[in-house]
Amino acid sequence: MITNLYFVRHAHSTYTPNELERPLSERGKEDARWITELLKEEGIDHVISSPYKRAIQTVEGIARFLGLPIELMEDYKERVLSEQPVENFSEAIEMVWDNYSYAFEGGESNYLAQKRGVEVVYHTLERFEGKNVAIGTHGNIMVLIMNYFDAKYDYNFWRELGMPDIYKLSFKGKDLIDVERISNQKIIC
């Protein structure tokens, strides 16, 4: 039995220091409508999201269209890079990808964040076996999860992600058997 997890990287957000409440920007809201149109074609059975507002807002259109609730799962939240803002975000991300064991003070190493992400994926696969599940999430945790199953999904892959973006990961049991990018063509809403 095949289970399809549609990892939806959130759309563009308006920066606020409050990670949990950071909303989508106007461009992000427009792109979330595009995400809804793409997911309408995928036979989605369940909608899950990180508790972060920008992730929820990115998948709420498909949930509304299908009349489904959005189940919040804490472990789909973005990796915690540091307890304090870092001086240079790009350099900081590159550092943690270069050394999977390295963590800034109060932050998660790649290993720790990846472990959290893979555990929630296994939990999702067990609960929704044979179903199509849309998951509102974040770029770094999404790629760390993908990297666990295939090392080609790395820092360079993360840098090329769109915002938003959708990757369909197909599993047979707990084995990843296929990855397909769903959002490779922009639809005009």
Rank of each mutant, 00 (worst) to 15 (best):
M1P: 10
I2N: 13
I2L: 09
T3L: 05
T3V: 07
T3N: 07
N4F: 02
L5K: 09
Y6G: 04
F7V: 02
R9P: 01
A11P: 00
S13R: 07
Y15V: 05
P17L: 08
L20Q: 12
L20S: 10
P23V: 09
S25H: 02
G28P: 01
E30S: 10
I35N: 04
I35T: 03
I35A: 07
I35D: 05
T36W: 04
E37S: 14
E37F: 05
L38D: 00
L38V: 02
L39N: 01
E41M: 09
H46W: 10
H46R: 14
V47R: 12
P51D: 15
P51E: 13
Y52M: 15
R54W: 03
A55V: 00
Q57V: 01
V59I: 08
V59M: 03
E60D: 14
G61Y: 00
G61L: 01
R64D: 14
F65A: 14
L66V: 02
G67F: 01
G67N: 05
P69I: 08
P69D: 14
E71C: 05
E74W: 02
D75F: 01
Y76M: 08
E78A: 00
E78R: 00
R79V: 00
R79G: 02
L81Y: 05
P85G: 04
P85Q: 02
P85H: 03
V86C: 07
E87K: 13
E87F: 08
N88D: 15
N88E: 12
N88Y: 06
N88C: 11
E91W: 03
I93L: 14
I93P: 01
M95V: 05
M95A: 14
W97Y: 13
D98Q: 15
N99M: 03
Y100H: 13
S101D: 14
S101P: 06
A103E: 09
A103H: 06
F104V: 08
F104I: 07
F104K: 03
E105T: 12
G106L: 05
G107E: 05
G107P: 00
L112T: 14
L112F: 12
R116N: 10
R116G: 10
V118K: 10
E119P: 12
V120Y: 08
Y122H: 15
Y122N: 14
H123T: 13
L125W: 05
E126D: 15
R127E: 13
V133R: 11
V133G: 09
A134T: 03
T137H: 01
H138P: 00
N140E: 05
N140W: 00
M142S: 09
M142P: 01
L144N: 04
L144A: 02
I145G: 04
N147H: 15
Y148P: 04
F149G: 08
D150A: 13
D150C: 11
A151M: 10
K152L: 05
D154N: 15
D154Y: 01
F157Q: 03
W158M: 12
R159S: 12
E160S: 15
M163D: 07
D165F: 02
D165M: 07
L169F: 06
L169N: 09
S170K: 10
F171G: 06
F171N: 08
K172D: 14
G173Q: 12
K174I: 06
L176V: 06
D178V: 03
D178M: 09
D178T: 06
V179H: 06
E180W: 04
E180V: 11
R181C: 04
R181S: 05
I182V: 15
S183V: 07
Q185C: 07
I188N: 13
I188E: 14
